[in-house]
């Protein structure tokens, strides 16, 4: 388990990165509305992802209103792809173990 990136493994952050991997840019309101998080919760997740270098943050003003856009960085893309690979490998391993356990539990006559 130590191979999995803990920054990404948190469910909300995993979803944020997955959404950002499907788009070029998304703003704060879009992520808020899609995920149903509170502003404070989303802000803290975005800070964490920005500090990890996975997300690029661009702040601007649209008229008088502040506007924050997020974009997945190349290291963010790599980290997410690597996370999915690791997760798939672990799940495959779990499936193999489960199949072996079930085979033992059923006994030698199970196939007949």
């Amino acid at each position: 388990m130590s191979g999995l990136d803990k920054t990404i493994h948190e469910p909300a952050r995993l979803r944020i990165l997955t959404i950002l991997s499907g788009v070029d840019v998304a703003d704060f309101s879009f992520l808020l509305e899609t995920l149903g998080l509170t502003k404070g919760n989303l802000s803290s997740h975005m800070d964490r992802l920005e500090k990890a270098g996975y997300v690029d943050v661009r702040k601007s003003f649209k008229g008088k209103l502040p506007h924050t856009e997020f974009r997945l960085t190349p290291p963010g893309h790599e980290a997410l792809a690597s996370y999915w690979d690791d997760l798939d490998a672990i799940r495959a391993l779990q499936d193999t173990h489960s199949a072996a356990r079930n085979g033992r539990a059923a006994g030698p006559d199970a196939s007949t």
Binding site: V23, F28, L31, E33
Partner: peptide, 12 residues
């Protein structure tokens, strides 16, 4: 409205 903004990949 509240839905916010998302642009497709490759738009830039």
């Amino acid at each position: 409205g509240r839905e916010g903004y998302a642009s497709p990949r490759g738009r830039r």
